Amino acid sequence: MTPCAYILLCSDGTLYTGWTNDIEKRLAAHNAGRGAKYTRGRRPVTLLYSEECASKSEAMSREAAIKKLSREEKLLLSEGKIS
């Protein structure tokens, strides 16, 4: 399983950023209400963006960097317009 950082689009239009070793399992957990507390009341969530990383620490660092981006920058990242 490959570590990755990801961005979810919540049903209320907000964005959630996280990291995981198994994106499909984590997405299912979010939608089942077993994911992050933030997403429990904002289901269903859809995967907006994911980025594979070489290691867990790299995925965690990338998650932290993405969280510092503005909403607009996160949307541009998901569209492939910035990296």
Rank of each mutant, 00 (worst) to 15 (best):
A59H: 00
A54G: 14
T17D: 04
L47K: 02
T46I: 06
L48I: 02
K67M: 14
W19Q: 04
S83M: 09
A29G: 06
R43M: 06
N31W: 04
A64K: 13
K37F: 12
R43K: 12
C53Y: 02
V45C: 15
T17R: 03
K74Q: 14
S83G: 10
E73P: 02
A65R: 14
A54N: 14
K67W: 09
S78F: 04
D22P: 03
W19V: 00
Y6N: 03
A65F: 03
G13A: 10
S55H: 10
Y16E: 06
A65L: 09
A65E: 15
A32Q: 14
K74D: 07
L77F: 13
A54L: 14
K67Y: 04
Y38L: 10
A32M: 13
L69F: 07
A36M: 07
N21G: 14
S11G: 02
S83H: 11
K74E: 09
S78Q: 07
C10G: 06
A54T: 15
G41C: 07
K81A: 11
S57A: 11
D12Q: 04
L77H: 05
I7R: 00
A65S: 13
R42D: 09
S11M: 06
C4D: 02
S61L: 08
C10T: 12
G18S: 09
M60S: 06
K81S: 10
A29R: 09
Y6P: 02
A54W: 10
L77Y: 04
S70Y: 06
A64S: 15
N31I: 01
A32F: 07
